[in-house]
Each structure stands twice: as structure tokens, then as C-alpha cells.
Amino acid sequence: MTQSRRMLVLRAVVEDYIRSQEPVGSTSLTKQHHLGVSSATIRNDMAALEDEGYLIQPHTSAGRVPTEKGYRYFVDRLATVVPLSEAQRRGINSFLSGSVSLTDALQRSARLLSEITGQVAVVASPSLAKATLRHVEMVPVAMTTLLAVVITDSGRVAQHGLGVSAMPPTDAVARLSNAVNEQCNGLSLSRSAETVRAIGSSVGYEDVRAVAESLADAFESMALDERANELYMSGASRLAHTQSVADLAPLFDALEEQVVLMKLMSNLSEETNASGVGVSIGSENHSPELLHASVVSSGYGRAAAARDADGEQDGDESSVGDTSGSADEPIAFVGSIGPTHMDYAATMAAVKAVARYLTAFVRDGLA
């Protein structure tokens, strides 16, 4: 009995169980797969796989089903994610290309991903902590208040009120805005804060020194915001039609705990396999509510932008200015949550495809 054949048997069991959700027996494997050995030999292989913890037999007379260890072996051997068909790609592009804003694109992405997978889709808006500055505009809104409108490279727009004891001259505010936009474009928000303070303390900016300090404080506050602003979810009702109430109750509890879910999927999107997709199965989620669920996640943004569908370089993304390391990681994530017997190959391909679209959306400045 060779180890390689035994693992082919494991793969066949996982594939058949994902498709049927019924325990898999040696007779059906012999009929469905060309393994080149007898049913008795396959039965011996399955017994060995059970001893090794890859399979379990729910009932004495029943076939086997994969364990968490079995699913993990199967997923890890999916070295490359099979890309979606050309028709599926066109469908994704057609559905998402109508997006009029970043928020619209994220909402559409969640709906589309849930429709493709039949599972819960979760899409996060970009975190300001990982953003770089694209443009800032300061507008007087009261006698002692300026409104700073901050636009980042991810398309996120943030507004901050800047309090001053007395409104400085309009031309002085405009001069400060121009200097900030010239010197901070492409910098991380923390570096932008340092640069703004240096501008405010330099000669010629005495009238707006307090404004510069207030703007720098606003940038620092944004840089410390480690939370993605919002999670867009879709597909919970769809999943309810395919899963038992016992499995769904804890899963819905997990969906309510958005901070925990965000941390899990964000970490997973940064700890991906060679294909750029991360998968966490059952107890690997470190959450009782997700003990019988699997999570598939991929980052989108600057890091993902460097690769095309086959993992090749799209182009040099390193010349956009200082990002203080953020160019090496995604700015947000897209993911899918479903049962441990989900169709991993299809889910991973769909998650990756949607992530790539959002990467292009952010990169091309469509937001």
C-alpha cells in the first residue's frame, strides 16, 4: 500500500463527500474513480486513513467522512486555485462594473460572492490604518472650525473637524493645503502627520501653525484606526436553506461578533497560501461558533495588485511613495464562510476572482 495511493483515496473521499454530503464507501469510490485497485484494497486504505485521523466512520455500517485533518490535507494540496471560466469572469466583471463608488462595489461584491458560493460572503472596506494619502481639502464651516476632507489611495473619504481659536486668512489655508498635497501624496497617514507638523513649524506658515497641528492630530487618529470601517455581508438567508438549525445558530452568533470575525478574516487574508487565498477549518478558527465552519479569505488592494490571475506580476507597484510597509500587505479582505464540507476549490476561486476585481477597482482609482 503506497502513501501516494492512499492520499488519492483521501482526495476522492473528500471530493465525493463535498458533492453528496453522504458517508462515502469503498464500493462507490471504485465506481466513481479510476484508482486501479479493488474495492477491498480501497477499504483497507480507508481504514488506514481512519487510523491516521484523516477520516471518521460515523456509524459501524456506514462509509467514511473527512475529518478536519482530512479537509486540511485536501486544501493544502490545492496548490493552485483553478481560475474561473471565461464566462464566469465576464459575469463577475459585468455585475461589478456598474459600481458607482467604493461602497457600491463592496456591496455588489458581497452579493455576487454569496450567489456564486451559496454561502455567507463578507467584504471589508479598507482600513484607514493601511491607507496612504491622496488628497486633502480644508473648508471653513464655522467661525472657529475647518472641515478637513481626506481622500486616501483606497478611495475612502474621511472628514475631520479642525478647531482653531481664530480663523486664519483664506490664502494661508490654501497655501498649507497645497503644501500638504505636494509633500504628503503617497505617504502613510503617520508619515503625513510628521510632514504636516514640519510644514507648520517652517517659515511662512506661522498663521496656520495651529491648523497644521490639528490636521496632524487628525492624521494620527486615522493611522491608529486598525478597524476596517464596515463589513458588508450577504448570503445568510441562502445558507439557512442548506444547513441544519443546530449548525446555523452558532454561526449566526459568530456573524454578530463582527470585531472577532474581522480579526480572523483579516489575519487569514495576510497568511495565505501560494495562490493568495487563506483557508481556516473548524477549530483553526479559534471560535466555538465557527467550530463546524470553514473560512476562506483573500486580501485585496496594493499587495494583491502585484499579481495577475496566474500569479504573475502586473507591473511595478513600488513607486507610489512611502507606505511604511503597507505595500506588502492587503488593505482589506474579501471572504466566504460556510460548512466544513464546502466546495473548497470553487469557493477559493470565487474569493480570489472577486478580490482581484476589487484590487483593480481600488488601483485604477475608480472609487
Rank of each mutant, 00 (worst) to 15 (best):
A193N: 07
G98D: 13
S221T: 07
E226A: 12
E86P: 07
S94M: 13
V120Y: 00
R90A: 07
L102D: 00
A124L: 01
S192L: 03
V149H: 08
A87F: 12
G118S: 01
L96Y: 03
V164L: 14
A166P: 00
T195A: 08
R108F: 08
V136M: 10
S97Q: 13
G161R: 15
S109Y: 04
N178F: 08
V141C: 07
M222Q: 08
V123Q: 02
L187Y: 03
S188Q: 06
L113S: 01
A212H: 06
V157R: 11
V122K: 00
V173I: 14
L106Q: 06
P140S: 14
S201L: 03
S127Y: 03
R156T: 12
N181W: 10
S201V: 02
A142E: 13
E226S: 11
G186F: 04
R175F: 06
S99W: 07
I92T: 01
A172I: 03
E137A: 05
V211H: 03
R156D: 09
V211R: 01
S188H: 04
S127A: 15
E115S: 10
L224F: 06
A148F: 06
P140E: 15
M222Y: 09
S94Y: 13
P168A: 13
Q107K: 10
R89Q: 14
D217L: 12
A121D: 07
V123S: 02
A228N: 10
L215Y: 06
T132I: 11
A121Y: 02
E115F: 04
A166C: 05
G118H: 01
I151Y: 09
A158S: 11
A148K: 08
P140N: 14
P126C: 11
E226R: 08
S99R: 07
V120K: 00
E115G: 05
P168F: 13
V150M: 05
E226P: 00
V149G: 02
R156M: 14
E182N: 01
S214V: 08
T152G: 09
L84H: 00
L112Q: 04
S97Y: 08
V211W: 04
R111G: 08
S202C: 13
L113C: 01
V157T: 11
V141W: 08
N178H: 10
A198P: 05
A223P: 02
D171P: 00
I92M: 12
D171W: 12
F95L: 12
V208N: 03
E206A: 10
A174Q: 08
A131C: 11
A121Q: 06
L128S: 09
N185Y: 05
L113E: 01
A105Q: 03
T103E: 14
Q159L: 14
A210S: 13
S127V: 05
E137H: 07
D104H: 04
F95K: 09
A172G: 05
A216G: 08
V203G: 02
V164F: 06
A179D: 14
A142H: 07
S201A: 05
A148M: 10
G204C: 07
V164Q: 06
Q88R: 10
D207E: 14
T117V: 09
S85C: 02
R111Q: 14
D225M: 10
E86Q: 14
S97E: 15
